[in-house]
């Protein structure tokens, strides 16, 4: 019996990407719930907010780097300050274009980034991630 993830959080200001990523995740049928936040600030608020006495604790955060206002990097700087119980399972950095080698270098400096992936997210990329980080869930 396949076990599903509880919650996947998408942080991206670009609604079209959110739509595509949501669709991919929904079709892959790997999670109970998909949460979408259009900005880093809202995402942090969401992570810190208790609902029914529990933090959301999404298993995966797909984080866009290039966002207006608070960028992905700034999100990560704030994220490390959160309580352990507020944090997520893994963080995957979504890079906008294949050429973002400087972004990749920067991403490598953040220990809390578990993986990075080029946009758009595809079913194949998603399944590889789950296989790697959540083998029990297959």
């Amino acid at each position: 019996m396949k076990k599903k993830l509880r919650n996947i959080l998408l942080i991206d200001d670009y609604e079209a990407d959110n739509y595509i990523h949501q669709r991919v995740i929904r079709l892959a049928d790997v999670t109970e719930k998909i949460t979408v936040k259009l900005g880093a600030r809202e995402a942090l608020d969401y992570l810190c907010e208790q609902i029914d006495g529990a933090y959301p604790n999404p298993e995966i955060i797909f984080l866009d780097i290039n966002m207006p206002g608070m960028s992905g990097w700034e999100f990560l700087d704030e994220y490390v300050k959160l309580d352990e119980e507020q944090k997520a399972g893994i963080i995957v950095c979504m890079l906008t274009t294949s050429d973002a080698s400087s972004d990749q270098e920067k991403a490598a400096q953040y220990d809390i980034i578990n993986d990075f992936s080029n946009k758009p997210l595809t079913k194949k990329k998603l399944m590889t991630l789950i296989e790697q980080y959540f083998p029990d869930y297959l």
């Binding site: 670009y14 595509i20 906008t96 274009t97 050429d99 946009k119 758009p120």
Partner: peptide
């Protein structure tokens, strides 16, 4: 050219969809 790629990619994703 860098920023043009993103909307391009979106169009192409939706064509795929």
């Amino acid at each position: 050219s860098h920023d043009l790629k993103e909307p391009m990619r979106t169009v192409s994703s939706f064509v795929d969809i």
